[in-house]
Design a protein around this nucleic acid. Structure first.
Lengths: 349, 349
DNA sequence: GTGACAATCTGTAACGTTTCAGTATATAGG
DNA sequence: CCTATATACTGAAACGTTACAGATTGTCAC
């Protein structure tokens, strides 16, 4: 028995990665005590606690994730679920950095779980939940009646959505105020004399489609301008399609003199379409566009822009998920961000 | 003892997530047998093997990652290490999708490990290696003498670099042929009559800086054109800085009549700077730019573009890392991609 | 001096997996 | 008929962690 003990201690002092056993050996305490001392359990003496924590810091002890996960089921993982074909580029980049920023000084890792056009969006969620691969999930492209949100709510797995749902169910979200964006855009266009406005909207199936559309039509009647229908395309369509449809539209007798565009890349296409039709931006027509990086003004000086900050969205979403995991009530983890970096006012003359 | 047995079996048949114990109970075999049967071990009878695999498939058995990881040390994780401030947006998005594509039907997960300007780039690598958080690592912003590559090579952890090193050490990489890009760009500019060329290069510390520069200067002497130095800025500088420096440069007596730009966003700034100086793209000066998404031609019709496919890069990098993990020799996992979607030839007239 | 009780610490078991060292059975060789 | 060997399977131990149920002190009231 003495031999066994010695042998074990020798192993514990080995030069591999330190474990609780290593710490136990070094401090002369039991593994259990060390474990509890590290998490400030009350039944451990103050001095012991400090001693253990000191040694742990000194030798750079880090809990083994697999051990914790196996024992407790806690993965310390947040999963960001992304559509590999339809997400906006800057969205992917910025939201990842936003999330990273928030989880940087936590034990959490960020895993990216992709799904493609051909898959049911519920697939990756089912996978995550069934395999218990994450403590929290962030989803985008949220729908009014979102099966993913419903599914996770039913299983009680913490998540946050980019965009709101409309199912009468409460869950954390972060959203950009697209209603405000659309109303401000319309008001501004009206302010510079534009009367016939077209909206390049988000895809109908996503919640922010109606937010945007409502803001657009409400402001339209407020300012007494009229809508030129432009709903054969959405921001999800290809650059080429949007460009072509815009050009078609601009060649009609009754054509818009103002556009509201929900995405920067789509705006490039709209402008190209306008110019294809031989018209000039700022003279014949004005365009207000959302953008997430400050590049559109380089593209055409005349463009009017509203900024949506995806990095902030990522940070907020991460905070929400961590909050839920930490026991906060879902209803308190909802946020809406207002349009910023407002339109540079300008008269067409 | 009988009671205990029954109790255990009851647990095994429970409705939680199925484990090897569940399978063992259902098949009437031992846990060991089931484990081996699932991985086609030779000492398991053919029928037993099929039977176990059938049941496993039926009840949707998936090995517990924490269990495997704890026992074997295998994490089934690939980590993509990214600089949160300096990566190109479309790079982040596309490379993630490229990697995802390749690991989609493997047990691997992708985790994103970020680091910021203020940190030593080696920090995240050290963290990953010390905590054994990944089976393989992908890094970008590779330097000729890259401490990260050296570090991982020393510890024997599989990795792949986006871009090459120049340390006489062999490791997997994927790189875009920036030498070819620069030579083709210069040749093309010379072909349309441009004689005084400026290069907006990658940051000096990265390996592809010299690749690009060498291609540029080699082609310059080949076609007998001259260089207008433009090395106070790189593609890493802010849009505003590049724009200002370009404008300054274009107001000089001896100014370039051609630009080669290593990044799309920087190209927007160059064009803005050119126009700030009252000059016209396509008439006074031509610009050849790399781009990763097909948007620059919408920006200015006159822009000449070469495409770099980051999604492909991500896929290649993932293949390389998996290959190395799978036992292939590092030297066989290197690839170079040629410029595609060549310049639309056009005369300035 | 005794019992009660708080304070502090500890061993064992379990999470799910794989590996090691077997065991049991059948087959074949002599 | 006995031994050797191959075939097919199995239990125990271990990876690192935490929870549970003690165990060992010391202190204090009476």
């Amino acid at each position: 028995m003495d031999r066994d003990q010695t042998e074990k201690d020798d192993e514990a002092s080995g030069l591999g990665r330190p474990t609780l056993k290593t710490l136990a050996f070094m401090t002369g305490l039991g593994v259990t005590t060390v474990s509890r001392a590290l998490k400030d359990a009350p039944e451990i003496g103050a001095e012991t606690r400090r001693r253990v924590q000191l040694v742990a810091k000194q030798i750079g002890y880090r809990p083994n994730r697999a051990g914790v996960r196996l024992r407790t089921g806690k993965t310390n993982v947040i999963s960001l679920v992304l559509n590999t074909e339809r997400e906006i580029m800057s969205f992917v980049s910025d939201i990842i950095y936003g999330v990273s920023e928030v989880i940087a000084d936590t034990p959490y890792h960020l895993i990216v779980t992709p799904y493609s056009r051909s898959q049911d969006p519920l697939d990756p969620i089912r996978y995550l939940v069934e395999t218990g691969s994450a403590d929290g999930v962030i989803i985008s492209r949220t729908q009014p009646n979102d099966p993913r949100a419903r599914y996770m709510l039913e299983r009680g797995i913490p998540f946050a959505t980019h965009g709101r749902t409309d199912m009468g169910l409460i869950h954390p979200y972060h959203d950009f105020d697209n209603y405000a964006f659309a109303t401000e855009a319309v008001r501004h266009l009206a302010g510079i004399g534009r009367r016939r406005l077209a909206l390049l909207a988000p895809p109908v199936e996503l919640t922010y489609h109606s937010h945007t559309l409502n803001g657009f039509t409400d402001a339209l009647s407020e300012v007494g301008a009229s809508e030129i229908p432009f709903n054969t395309v959405s921001v999800d369509h290809s650059i080429e399609q949007i460009r072509m449809r815009t050009a078609q539209l601009m060649r009609r007798d009754v054509r818009p003199d103002g556009f509201v565009s929900s995405a920067a890349a789509a705006t490039l296409a709209i402008v190209a379409g306008i110019e294809d039709a031989g018209l000039k931006l700022g003279r014949d027509v004005d365009v207000v566009s959302k953008q997430s990086s400050d590049l559109l003004h380089l593209f055409r000086r005349e463009l009017l822009v509203v900024n949506e900050n995806f990095r902030l969205a990522g940070a907020e979403l991460a905070r929400s998920v961590l909050g839920w995991i930490g026991g906060a009530t879902p209803g308190s983890l909802q946020s809406l961000s207002k349009p910023t970096g407002v339109l540079a006012y300008r008269r067409p003359d």
